[in-house]
């Protein structure tokens, strides 16, 4: 682009040369509204959160500056250390399950059979529908009295009494992960599918000629070639899953006894329900290191495909 414009520009009017020099100005002009918006609504709030987290601010009461005291005190409280552990567990288990199931689903969706387009559409619906509302349906399906799962399991004589899915800590933890996997699976599967279709078919044909079986092809061809896509999706999902709010807020409110409480729901409860803005901000900022780590890794991974 540069050389083409340079050549044609030289043979033309000086007017053109002026515009070429003005290009950075135009570019900044195009970017200005976006940058202004993001500074006002993302950078400033982040700095403000950092400031709040170092004070004892309550709603309506200006607080005292206490430095990093909130960050140091929080991990010593029982509720926060439980919440932090829950967040790690929730993220690790849900991302792993989405990875395995997403890969399986992508392999199924990659089959060229009639009607696959509609199957792809159907499995994408959970990703399109508003998550807060579809989780409401899961809340109803896990209802302690009217759960459809209880009805089916009792009919099959697998359980003898109704199970309180959202009332027993271990089951509630399982339930929130299940619902997160349900909502996140389409994104994993479709992205993996996009990666799968870029792998040249000749590679598989050559492998077949060489007598490599289906499992061997998957292990030695599909997985290595898919690795960049797998890494990107997993990193992205770590950010999204660790900061998930709607699933847990709607399904369990963090209960029973805070066993499904995650950073986002605890920050909401402290910051808004009880008005403790200082600690609320500090809790949500515990998500920030994850964001930084993921961005750093991602930036390194993408360096090569960076230029548009």
């Amino acid at each position: 682009m540069q050389s083409a414009e340079g050549v044609s520009g030289a043979s033309r009017l000086p007017r053109y040369r002026i515009r070429w020099n003005a290009e950075p100005m135009v570019a900044w002009g195009f970017l200005a509204p976006t940058l202004l918006l993001l500074v006002l609504l993302a950078v400033y709030p982040l700095c403000y959160a950092l400031y709040l987290s170092m004070t004892t601010t309550q709603v309506g009461v200006p607080g005292r500056f206490v430095g990093p005291a909130n960050f140091i005190r929080l991990p010593r409280t029982e509720i926060f250390s439980l919440t932090l552990w829950n967040t790690v567990w929730y993220t690790a288990v849900a991302v792993f399950a989405k990875l395995v199931l997403g890969l399986t689903l992508a392999l199924v969706l990659a089959q060229r059979v009639p009607g696959m387009k509609w199957i792809r559409g159907a499995v994408l619906v959970p990703w399109v529908a508003p998550i807060a509302l579809s989780v409401l349906a899961w809340t109803w399906m896990f209802d302690s009295t009217y759960s459809v799962f209880n009805w089916v399991l009792m009919r099959l004589h697998l359980i003898s009494a109704p199970v309180a899915w959202l009332g027993v800590p271990i089951l509630a933890r399982f339930a929130v992960v299940l619902v997160n996997v349900w909502a996140g699976l389409p994104f994993f599967a479709m992205t993996f599918l996009a990666g799968l279709v870029t792998i040249p078919r000749e590679l598989y044909e050559a492998a077949t000629v060489d007598g490599v079986g289906a499992l061997g092809q998957f292990r030695r061809l599909t997985l290595p070639l898919l690795r960049p896509v797998l890494a990107t999706v997993v990193l992205f999902s770590v950010v999204m899953t660790s900061s998930d709010f709607a699933t847990i807020f709607v399904l369990t409110h963090g209960g029973p006894m805070n066993t499904t409480q995650v950073l986002a729901t605890l920050a909401y409860r402290l910051g808004l329900a009880t008005g403790d803005l200082g600690n609320g901000a500090a809790i949500s900022l515990y998500l920030f290191p994850i964001l930084i780590a993921v961005t750093a890794i991602q930036a390194r991974l993408m360096r090569r495909s960076w230029q548009w």
Binding site: L38, L41, A42, V43, Y44, P45, L46, Y48, A49, L52, F236, V239, M240, S243, D244, F245, L263, A264, A267, Y268, G271, L272, L277, G280, A281, S284, L285, L287, F288, L291, V294, T295, Q298, A299
Partner: peptide
């Protein structure tokens, strides 16, 4: 890109004040 990755749950408290 970093702002794109920034989750809304990180910003809702200060934004509520804003």
């Amino acid at each position: 890109f970093v702002v794109y990755l920034m989750p809304t749950t990180l910003l809702f408290l200060p934004l509520a004040r804003l």
